[in-house]
């Protein structure tokens, strides 16, 4: 099941549509990383609202994506983790510690806009 990745201005939005196998997750990782380079996007939103489980592999892959995207100079935010999913994740010990999270797509876009503005400001002030 391929995950559609849409370009929205400076950002990419990958919205997962159904349960993903490991192969699907790896395909998503490769596609997102490639497209960020292609579009020179400054941020990526991965919408996981429909996922009713995020196990260790899914969590690790999302973290890998975030790290790879950061290496390409962009930011990632995971949006839409469901309450029950979040609770089961932390019980298993999966906390996605260094990855940004937001409630939903709207919040994710707001987060990325703020983040990228901060980063630009930071770069600008350092340049002065």
């Amino acid at each position: 099941m391929e995950v559609p990745i849409l370009k929205q201005g400076d950002f990419l939005i990958a919205s997962i549509q159904s349960a993903l196998t490991d192969a699907d997750l790896m395909a998503l990782r490769d596609a997102v990383v490639t497209k960020v380079g292609h579009f020179r996007s400054s941020g990526v939103i991965i919408d996981v609202t429909v996922l009713d489980v995020m196990d260790s592999f899914a969590t690790r892959t999302l973290r890998d994506i975030a790290h790879m995207i950061r290496l390409r100079g962009a930011e990632t935010v995971i949006v839409g983790i469901q309450p029950d999913v979040a609770f089961s994740m932390v019980q298993l010990g999966l906390t996605l510690e260094d990855v940004a999270t937001a409630l939903d797509l709207e919040e994710g876009i707001a987060y990325l806009s703020r983040r990228t503005k901060e980063i630009r400001k930071g770069v600008a002030s350092r340049g002065r």
């Binding site: 999913v85 979040a86 609770f87 994740m89 932390v90 906390t95 996605l96 409630l103 939903d104």
Partner: peptide, 12 residues
């Protein structure tokens, strides 16, 4: 602690 972590996963 788990509650704090899970809340963060929801973005709070």
């Amino acid at each position: 602690v788990q509650t704090v972590e899970a809340s963060r996963l929801l973005g709070a």
